[in-house]
Simulated assay, not measured.
Amino acid sequence: MAKIGDDLYVLDGHRRFAAAKRAGIDVPYRILPDSEIWARYPSGQVQEAGVSMTGEP
Rank of each mutant, 00 (worst) to 15 (best):
S35A: 01
R40E: 09
L32D: 00
S35T: 03
G13A: 10
G13F: 05
P28H: 03
H14S: 15
T54N: 02
R40P: 01
A39S: 12
A49R: 13
Y9Q: 02
R15V: 14
R40G: 04
W38H: 05
D12H: 11
I37L: 15
H14E: 14
R15F: 14
Q47L: 08
G24H: 05
P33E: 14
A20L: 14
I25F: 08
S43D: 12
D12M: 12
G44H: 09
F17M: 14
A2T: 11
I31S: 04
P33T: 10
Y9T: 03
E36W: 03
F17Y: 15
S52G: 10
E56V: 08
R22L: 15
I4P: 02
Y29R: 07
P33K: 15
Q47R: 15
L8S: 10
W38Q: 07
Q47I: 10
Q47T: 11
D26G: 06
S52D: 08
G5C: 08
M53H: 01
G5M: 05
Y29E: 00
S43G: 11
P28D: 07
E56K: 09
Q45S: 11
A49T: 06
Y41Q: 04
T54K: 06
V46Q: 07
Q47N: 08
S35W: 03
M53K: 02
D6S: 10
S43K: 09
R16Y: 11
D34Q: 11
L11F: 05
Q45L: 10
P57V: 09
R16S: 13
Y29C: 03
M1I: 13
D7Y: 08
G5T: 07
A23I: 13
A49F: 07
A49W: 04
D6P: 04
T54H: 03
R40Y: 13
M53V: 03
S35P: 00
R15M: 14
W38E: 05
K3E: 09
G50P: 00
E56Q: 11
V51N: 00
A39C: 01
P42L: 06
Q47K: 15
M53R: 02
I31M: 03
M53E: 00
K21G: 02
G5P: 03
K3G: 01
D7S: 13
A18D: 04
G55A: 05
A20G: 12
P57G: 05
L32G: 00
D34R: 10
I25C: 09
I37R: 04
V27E: 02
G50F: 02
A2W: 01
P28K: 05
I4E: 13
G24C: 13
E36D: 06
I31W: 00
G24V: 05
D7C: 09
L8E: 09
A39K: 10
D12N: 14
M1S: 05
I25K: 12
S35F: 01
F17S: 06
K21P: 00
E56G: 03
V51L: 02
R15Q: 15
A19D: 14
I25H: 11
L8K: 12
V27S: 01
M1T: 05
V46C: 07
D34G: 10
L8R: 12
R15A: 15
V27F: 00
I4M: 13
S35G: 01
A19L: 13
L32M: 02
Q47Y: 10
Y41A: 04
D7N: 14
A19Y: 06
A19C: 07
I4F: 11
I25Y: 07
